[in-house]
Computed example of a mutant assay.
Amino acid sequence: MTSGLEAALAQASSLSWSQRVHAGRDLASFAAVPEAATALVGLLLDVEDTAVTRRTAEALTSVGTVAAVRLIALAVAEADDHQADWLQTGVHDALVELDGVLDVAAICGQLARDPEEAVRRGAAEIAAWVNGTKG
């Protein structure tokens, strides 16, 4: 692992919400790395602070890879209603900044065929959010 990845992984378990927000941003580009993916899902489902959930979802959406959106889909499938609202807000924040609605929609279409049912369910929810942001 690179030292940047190791540092971000250490921040992901910090007691400080701001350190966890930084970890989410720093780890987003490593979404395909198993250790980072596990930490990112934990940050997306952070029970201590909604800013961590929101900003991690925003960072992963901004990365815009299949691996990144897949992690959001996994979190959406596990999230309670409150967490899901903040996940949606983070996705929306990134889409407004990047005008990346079509790319995320296309990725959700790919994830609709994922072998894991939770990913398919989460991707369908994200696709509904994305379609709601077009208008």
Rank of each mutant, 00 (worst) to 15 (best):
A57Y: 06
L60M: 13
L5T: 02
L44I: 03
D103F: 00
G42V: 10
E6C: 10
S13T: 13
H92D: 14
E116T: 09
D49T: 05
A94D: 02
V47L: 06
R121E: 10
A73C: 05
A8E: 06
D81Q: 10
I72L: 03
R25G: 09
Q88Y: 07
A68T: 04
L111D: 08
E35C: 00
G42F: 05
S16K: 11
V69F: 00
L95F: 14
A37G: 11
A32I: 06
A128H: 00
A67S: 04
V130E: 13
H82S: 07
H22V: 15
A51H: 11
S62E: 10
A59H: 00
T50Y: 12
D81V: 09
D49H: 05
D80H: 07
Q110T: 07
Q19L: 15
D26A: 14
T50I: 08
S14F: 10
V47Y: 03
Q19T: 11
A123G: 09
V91M: 13
W86M: 13
L71I: 05
A73L: 04
V21R: 03
C108A: 04
A36S: 09
T50F: 13
T2Q: 12
S29N: 01
H82F: 12
T53G: 01
L40R: 03
T38N: 06
L15M: 14
D103N: 08
L60E: 13
A105V: 13
A8C: 08
V130Q: 13
L43Q: 08
D103C: 04
E117M: 10
V119G: 01
V21S: 05
A39N: 07
L5R: 07
L9W: 05
D46H: 06
L15P: 12
Q110A: 06
R25F: 10
A68V: 01
A59K: 00
A32C: 05
G135M: 03
G132Q: 12
A51N: 15
V91Q: 09
L15E: 15
D114S: 08
Q11A: 15
A84I: 11
V52I: 10
E116L: 14
Q110C: 06
E125G: 02
L5E: 06
D81G: 07
V52C: 08
T38I: 08
D103L: 08
A7E: 14
G109V: 11
A23D: 02
G122N: 01
C108Y: 05
G100V: 07
A127Q: 14
G64R: 00
L44T: 03
E35M: 03
A36D: 02
G4Q: 14
R54Q: 12
A10E: 12
D114R: 00
